[in-house]
Amino acid sequence: MRSWEWARPVRPVRREVLSAVPELEEGRPPLLLVPGFGHGAWAYAENWLGHVAARGFSAYAMSLRGHGGSAPAPEATLRAYAHDVVQVAAGLPRRAVLVGHGAGALVVAHAMARYPAQAAVLVAPVFGGWATFGTALRRNPFGTLPAVFGAGLRLNRRQLFSGELPEADARRHAGRLGRAARRAQWQLLTGTDPEPAVGDPPVLVLGSPDDRVVPAAALNRAARRYASAPLLFPGMGHDLMLDARWREPIDAILDWLIKNPGRDDLG
């Protein structure tokens, strides 16, 4: 029974979706890349989008409402973000693999309760709660503390990228960061756990032990939810898709998808 959801449908907004499709359709499931708070589709367009297509998968990167090229939505909630993901996923020609980064992984986890994904990949997942907040506070007190009082959460360059990324690139990416809606940020701290996923999709969790947003313990915790262990990429920052060695994690994801289709109805 979802009387509340039925009675109060999420309002539609214009959503930005960037795509790259392979020249030859090989019957592989499409990937839907969901960015975390503050990021937009641009974060994937930089490196991953084209690479995924070059490896024969259709790739779609979206911006949650209020982010990137999607319409502004200052009152957005986690539910609205998950709604955006499910809307885009259901609009794709075939059952999609959901890939979520940072808090986008939490959004994907919520979306998985409303859409039977082919598989899901949680990249440096931020599942929220006070522990995550504590880490963020320690690493970047001036960016984090105001968020408690309703201002935007600000992440700095050194939290997001490793030292290997050229300074100019780091500065350019950090300059594009936006912010999530206040209510959604608050829900990240206090919100309820996602409902169980529908359709029993296989889930891969990956991240970096040197991530300064997601501590290793949080990574393990997230992976345990889905009865697995995280795949680790030492030396990388939180934004694995923008960091200097972006190629390694995405290749690992695609290899996993090829090797471990998980369900027998994978074409």
Binding site: R2, E5, W6, A7, P9, V10, R11, P12, H83, V86, Q87, A90, G91, R114, Y115, P116, V198, G199
Partner: peptide
């Protein structure tokens, strides 16, 4: 719409 779509495959929200 919300009462008519499949619970795991929503109709387009527009």
């Amino acid at each position: 719409r919300p009462f008519t779509q499949f619970p795991d495959f929503p109709m387009p929200d527009h």
